[in-house]
Design a protein around this nucleic acid. Sequence first.
DNA 1: CGAATGATGGTCT
DNA 2: GACCATCATTCGT
Length: 214
Amino acid sequence: MTVANAELSGAVLPRSFFARPAVEVAPELLGLWLWHGRTAVRIVEVEAYEPDDPASHSFIGPRPRTRSMFGPPGHLYVYRSYGVHWCANVVCDAPGVGSAVLLRAGEPMVGASLMAQRRAPASALRQLCSGPGKLCSALAIDATQDGVDLCRPGGSPRLSAPVGIDPGRGPTGWVPNPTDVIRTTRIGISKAIDQPWRWLLTGSPHVSRRAAQG
DNA sequence: CGAATGATGGTCT
DNA sequence: GACCATCATTCGT
């Protein structure tokens, strides 16, 4: 990594940040950076999935595929979607609970040209990471990263706070301004469709689908 | 702009 | 054999 990128990388979050239900962690992930190798995005859209949630992969209990979802918080849970795409979650709450936040979209911050290369023929900035499958493709995240610890300084992939923000400050760490966040129902599921467990950064052109006009 | 659809593979019934 | 936490493309308005 270049010196400039190292300075941009910010500080990782304490594991305690993730040791809460996904519905609490999810909105606070907005604005954080997800790094993998020489590429990084700012998270602009997330969804929470909980253990008593019929839409969650954890609903039926641990399976080989969902093993990491029941592991320690702050780790990655990666699964294959529709046999074609990869989707990445941040594991939350205590080990064994089965709570996670799906990373649905990001804004390219570092290595946009490399991400465009991986996403070819797509090239427009706002198309590179505007969906959970696109995000993993752009960041080159696949089954290899399933279970990886996102809290390791210098690790890859890893989550970090914006530059200049101390993620260890305050009771829950980094918290975005509430007026910067929009809350909606989740997308692309058939069960528990009324739970308002999707959050977006207000006005971001990098989300998978804009929120309905108020 | 929106609706419809095929690709493609693992998991569950 | 059905069902997907999706995406890119095609076709219709």
